[in-house]
Write a protein that binds this DNA or RNA. Structure first.
Length: 357
DNA sequence: CTAGGGTTAG
């Protein structure tokens, strides 16, 4: 466009700024901001709102606030963008402050606040806000319910989760894939695997994506339904959904749970073969598999040949294996390393003190 | 033309 000598106008900039936000590329966002000022578009409310969102998405909440403060005519989008910016940055004190200062609040304002509390791990507060919303706020929609279901999942609040499911159906909220994934995850995390499978089976296979497969495969794995988990992975491959790093993490977790050492090696190798880079979580899972199976030397050697530094969960898994399989010499070595790495690791420290007892 | 949601975490 620029090569052709066509200049962006006030309708172009929001898209460009949004792209920078999506990419979390503050550099390009800042250069757009400069261009916006140079071309005299800095007081366009759509452009200002997109700039708030861009800065917040790049983690620059100060930059976002500067744009927000510079505005003379703020609208609900401006306030919602600022609120969501604080919520996304995890500053729920300021997010709540913004929320309280607003004259008008729509479903997005409430949803951003609820989601912020969920992301901050304050699930009870998130539920409290949702209950208040039902009394004094606008009707919640399918986006609100995703965050609410996530709160129920983390609280293990199965009955509440069921109520939310009924609320969604009774109010005719659109059953999006995101919502169905949240339902699968909620039921799985609350231990209602049958319900998770029921929701999952209600999605036509051609509509599925990697997220919902990961949710059900991971849910089955964490509840020890290892065979079913691996069976669903095969099904996922048959449907032609490309697995990702998280799929493999779920599979390795399933192997750890079921004591499937051979299968774990196979998945670890597949992960690399598919061009993915194992993360420290993958390595930790692999160590866990080997340690649980009593293959302590193999686990130790595996850690030594990794291209990354060992992490506390990794050494913790190995230490547990050493203790359970009565290899106290190795336990002492691993325990010392673990304390070096993470001096505040109480639980593991207690594990180690058992070695000396 | 601008703002909100899902999968890992022993």
């Amino acid at each position: 466009m620029q090569q052709l000598g066509v200049a962006p106008n006030y309708l172009t900039y929001p898209f460009l700024v949004k792209a920078s936000a999506r990419l979390s590329n503050q550099e390009s966002g800042v250069s757009l901001h400069a261009q916006i000022i140079k071309t005299g578009h800095e007081s366009d409310i759509f452009i200002q709102n997109s700039l708030i969102h861009m800065y917040a998405s790049c983690g620059n909440i100060i930059g976002a606030h500067k744009v927000f403060d510079s505005m003379q005519g703020k609208n609900l989008v401006s306030w919602n963008s600022m609120l969501d910016g604080y919520a996304k940055c995890g500053d729920m004190v300021l997010a709540h402050k913004v929320f309280e200062s607003m004259q008008d609040r729509d479903v997005r304002s409430w949803s951003s606040l609820i989601d912020g509390y969920v992301k901050a791990g304050e699930y009870r507060e998130a539920m409290a806000i949702f209950e208040k919303m039902q009394v004094v706020g606008p009707k919640s929609n399918e986006v609100t319910m995703v965050s609410v279901l996530s709160a129920c999942a983390h609280l293990g609040a199965l009955e509440k989760g069921r109520m939310m499911h009924k609320y969604i159906v009774n109010n005719g909220l659109p059953m999006t894939m995101v919502l169905q994934t949240s339902l699968v995850d909620m039921y799985a995390k609350c231990g209602a695997i049958e319900d998770a499978l029921f929701v999952f089976r209600g999605v036509s296979k051609s509509q599925t994506d990697v997220f919902i497969w990961n949710a059900i495969i991971g849910g089955l794995a964490t509840h020890g339904l290892v065979e079913e988990s691996l069976k669903l992975f095969k099904e996922m491959q048959m449907v032609g959904i490309r697995s990702d790093e998280i799929t493999y993490l779920c599979l390795l977790a399933a192997c750890a749970h079921g004591g499937l050492v051979k299968e774990a090696w196979y998945f670890f190798e597949s992960l690399v073969k598919c061009g993915m880079t194992p993360t420290s979580e993958h390595y930790a899972c692999m160590v866990d598999v080997l340690a649980r199976a009593g293959q302590l030397t193999a686990a130790y050697q595996f850690i030594c040949q990794m291209p990354i530094e060992p992490t506390a969960p990794m050494l913790g898994a190995l230490l547990s294996g050493c203790i359970n399989h009565r290899n106290l010499d190795l336990a002492e070595i691993v325990g010392k390393k673990l304390i070096e790495l993470d001096p505040n690791n109480d639980g593991r420290y207690i594990g180690l003190s058992n070695v000396y007892a």
